[in-house]
């Protein structure tokens, strides 16, 4: 890629290699491809949702190298080589619901399900760092994600329940995705 090249007419494409949910994936995309669109449309991992594309709703939250970030505010090229976890990767290794997903089911933590992937990824990372949150902490943990359906109460319950499930399983960390 050279700096003389004028973008626009014939857009340069970049090979982007990532490891998503433990699986190496590659696609060739223009630099402007958002990480969210890359996951959804180039890799067909449509679990990651897009609710605003300006960083506020959190539906697009994925874990990059273990940290939750807004995938709508990143270009895929920036993450060449990264380890990414999406909601599809928050299951147990055998494909059964992971602890956070189970908790959402137990507590009716979702209605339309559109915001859910962003909550599941955010909470998964949060519980790695804070295995035993109080109800207030649980509410703060999800305070960067919008949900228009649930009024959040059942999501707060889901955070607490997920912490319980993880601790019942002894080593909660063993359940977290790679």
């Amino acid at each position: 890629m050279s700096i003389e090249e004028h973008p626009g007419r014939t857009e340069t494409r970049h090979d982007v290699r990532v490891t998503v949910n433990g699986v190496p994936r590659t696609a060739t995309v223009p630099a402007r491809r958002l990480l969210s669109d890359f996951l959804r449309h180039d890799l067909a991992l449509t679990g990651t949702h897009v609710g605003c594309e300006h960083g506020v709703c959190g539906a697009c939250t994925v874990l990059v190298d273990g940290r939750p970030i807004r995938s709508c505010l990143q270009f895929a090229v920036m993450h060449d080589g990264a380890e990414i976890t999406t909601v599809e990767g928050c299951t147990r290794p055998d494909g059964e619901l992971g602890p956070v997903q189970r908790a959402f089911r137990d507590c009716h933590g979702l209605q339309c399900g559109f915001c859910t992937p962003g909550f599941v990824t955010t909470i998964t990372a949060y519980l790695d760092e804070h295995p035993r949150p109080s109800a207030t902490e649980a509410r703060e943990a999800i305070s960067g994600n919008l949900c228009r359906c649930t009024g959040y109460q059942s999501i707060v319950d889901s955070v607490l329940r997920a912490a319980e499930i993880r601790s019942d399983q002894g080593d909660g960390r063993g359940e977290t995705p790679q």
Partner: peptide, 25 residues
């Protein structure tokens, strides 16, 4: 809501970065 096209540069050092910035003006 998708961005316009742009050319992407990923310098590895500060010198490279400022050279790139100087080049694109």
């Amino acid at each position: 809501m998708k961005p316009s096209a742009f050319a992407y540069h990923r310098p590895g050092t500060v010198d490279e970065a400022v050279a790139t910035l100087a080049g694109v003006g």
